[in-house]
Amino acid sequence: MTAMKLVAVSAGLGKPSSTRLLADRLSEATRKQLEPDQPVETRVIELRDLARDIANNMVTGFPSPALSEAIEAVTGADGVIAVTPIFTASYSGLFKSFFDVIDHTALAGKPVLVGATGGTARHSLALEHALRPMFAYLRAVVAPTAVYAASEDWGTGTGSQGDDLATRVTRAGGELAGLMRHGRTTGGVAEAVPFEERLAALRL
């Protein structure tokens, strides 16, 4: 069986960053729930390494070779994990800019799991009011569980309520794995329309 491609996009700025850590954990949780019957290739794209390339793409309108390769990895993946720090009540500018330079139809039907990190849990709904609508616009299929990790979550063990970070990561990974198994439903690519049809559409 050919391996499924799982690509995590991390907009964390530190090295190491808690955003990258969350991306890794979500990626691992998803992989575990696909394997062993379904082999998985995982990859993490750190947007920090592409920060200049992303800004240059905004200015010139085309991606550098490195950015182009990263965009192809994301658009060609069977599942995408997208994780950002919450800055000023929303996703970071770098995170948004990366998705801004991708063609707006390229993620249609793509299984996506969203995650975010922040200093306090008070910003956790940014996942629901910022990330989820953005991916809805892109017509991606977003897993129901979005995972927010606040500073306090990293020091909290498994709780009795079943709402600790580890439990949420596992649940979200299971949901993404399920969407990936279900298979990608593509939006379809436009074929070249014969010119006679275009003239006919204008009744010429």
Binding site: N56, V59, T60
Partner: peptide, 12 residues
């Protein structure tokens, strides 16, 4: 005007 303040001359 079109591509200034972006990539370097060498990259472009």
């Amino acid at each position: 005007p079109v591509y200034g303040h972006g990539p370097s001359l060498e990259e472009f």
